[in-house]
Design a protein around this nucleic acid. Structure first.
Lengths: 363, 363
DNA sequence: GTGAAAGCGCTAACAA
DNA sequence: TTGTTAGCGCTTTCAC
């Protein structure tokens, strides 16, 4: 089991007297199997990959031998020879380099998990990496050093230009987000405009008159949600007020300050559409610090439908982005890119999930 | 940019008339650089890896050439030749194969992100995979096919025996969790017993008399937290009641049913120590469905200190597991395993973070 | 200091 | 059907 590695032992471990070395048993390989089976490596290779060229019994004999010796073909060697990379890079882009930011977004992380499963089903490996603004230029390395066949990118954020540049360089990739004019890369995303519309329309239907929006309109997805919000408002004959359009940060917003502003201005909304569940939950807390209760005083709708949305108090009305649809769509989009097929953006339906936070309290 | 791939195009894409092929530009390689620089590939290889054997100017000339041609050494080929795998497998074990379960645990996902960063800093890649009970036996494949040097395993759960079996086979791995007697694999984890003690002791100090525990004692980590809970109770002279030891599922507990039981039995506790923040948040909601308010009627303490704990209402008192300590510890533990060094379990300190959910309400 | 040559472990023409 | 041979793209002795 001698496995060379760049890793170095910890000081603690080297200092420790009781450390023991494992016997360096040589790893078996294809030539060994071939010799023992009395055939060539070519035959072993074909047998193990299930080639129909090999006779039934030869194949089984070899398969049995391999199994009993616990032999497995070396994936890297095979991949090198075959010139066929079965690993996909999944990249989480973060605005800051604060440890764990986009990573703390449960929606993104659920997507990562779904991608892992989707890729696994297709027999592909997933290389996961986080990149911040500073290392952004190293992103193409993953592809150019041949470690991954292509990239699935999450967190379009403010990286639009860099992503476009990468697309121009011909990097195969699929991006989760929203397509804006001039987008050169392949995009998969939810129908953010309709999502925003549904959320706001629902609040209008509840009789809300003073509906605020919480979201960073610099962010392409949030901008579309805002457009949907405006459309619903327009339809209802409401006029959006400036103080109710709050350009908060997507992940770590200062909700307290915003509620303060509302209270000071005597302009507390009777409903808020927040562009993420995280923001919505933070808002509930910020409001309650001012003695404002959700949904009694303020109705709240979020976006994403993270797992927790159903389990917090009050449970959160939200716009569901279907992760189980998103993962396969992204993987397929990348597969198409790798075939050299350019596809137009994929827009997944968004669905309003009504829970307690936007409904009249039972009392 | 011809990149062969096992991926097949989607029906939608093939059907689509507007699909365009990218020109199959041949990828440059070391031999090309060598030819253009008028040296051998050996020299290029050495120059690019910064070997001191190569003369300063030769090295720079080659480096410049490579950069201008946007050449990068093929990582797989190099790794094959060098017999040195710089990829680590990070595995999330799930109890069910319900899509996204442990993956929906923000604590685990934050850890994954931290591992990604820690490994990246060391120049290692991270292969992320989820495994359920059914595919569990395929886990060693990752190592045995040479895709990864070793495994970092999260979600010890009820897999103890399988993990032990893998350790016996000599698979290099480091597991996040708790060490129980007879554990053969390398373990890194928080000080769960002390964490449970601190949480419960804090509730005792608040004057709580009827303190319940919520957690699956089958789970090694939860069992230790329970022991800490019992120790604090014992110290305070309290007797733990049966109905207040609830063996809930770690990730998706039926909190409603438990609260129902308490109410029916007329045995509603005045405080609950939950073995995860997720469970604590669910409990807050389940209690409120019965008109019970946190912290007014029931004080609650969680475990983990996920990012959201601070931002929900009421903000959650909890026991922090330091992710920033855990990630590096796991990586180092695996590094030591790969060196053949057996180290004893690493136990990281747990810290009580006091917030609203366990304190008397301000009113 | 640099180059020639021999592989890493496997697959795929091409022959037989 | 199976074996022979020639690499995949790189690193590294060993010689010069």
């Amino acid at each position: 089991m001698s496995r060379k590695s760049t890793l170095s032992p910890s000081p603690a471990a080297t200092a420790q007297g009781g450390a023991t070395q494992r016997p360096p048993a040589k790893r078996i390989q294809m030539a060994d199997i071939a010799r023992m089976a009395g055939v060539s490596t070519a035959t072993v290779s074909r047998a193990l990959s299930g080639s129909p060229l090999i006779q039934q019994d030869t194949r089984e004999r070899i398969a049995d031998l391999a199994r009993s010796l616990n032999y497995r073909v070396n994936a890297s060697a095979a991949s090198l020879r075959r010139k066929d990379i079965s690993t996909v890079g999944v990249v989480m882009l973060d605005d800051l380099d604060h440890p764990i930011q986009a990573a703390s977004d449960p929606f993104m992380m659920a997507m990562v998990a779904c991608l892992a499963d989707t890729l696994a089903e297709r027999g592909q490996d997933m290389l996961l990496a986080r990149y911040g603004q500073n290392r952004m230029d190293q992103l193409p390395d993953l592809v150019e050093t041949g470690r991954v066949a292509g990239l699935i990118v999450m967190g379009q954020w403010s990286w639009h230009e860099q992503l476009n540049a990468m697309a121009r360089r011909g990097l195969p990739m699929a991006v989760w987000g929203a397509s804006v004019p001039g987008t050169l890369y392949a995009v998969v995303g939810s129908d953010n405009e309709v999502g925003g519309y549904l959320a706001t329309r629902h609040l209008v239907d509840q009789g809300c008159q003073r509906i605020a929006y919480l979201g960073d309109v610099q962010h392409p997805e949030a901008a579309l949600r805002h457009q949907g919000y405006l459309r619903a408002l327009r339809e209802a004959g409401h006029t959006p007020r400036e103080i109710w359009q709050q350009p908060i940060l997507f992940a770590a917003p200062d909700l307290k300050g915003i509620v303060d502003d509302w209270v000071k201005a005597g302009a507390v909304p009777d409903a808020v559409f927040a562009s993420s569940d995280l923001a919505a939950m933070g808002l509930v807390r910020a409001l309650s610090a001012h003695g404002l209760h959700v949904p009694r005083d303020v109705r709240v709708v979020g976006f994403d439908d993270i797992a927790l949305a159903e389990h917090v108090h009050p449970s959160l009305t939200t716009v569901r982005q279907s992760i189980t649809a998103a993962g396969p769509a992204l993987v397929q989009m990348l597969a198409d890119q790798l075939q050299g097929l350019h596809r137009s953006p994929v827009v997944l339906p968004a669905e309003l999930i009504i829970r307690e936070s936007s409904l009249p309290p039972p009392g």
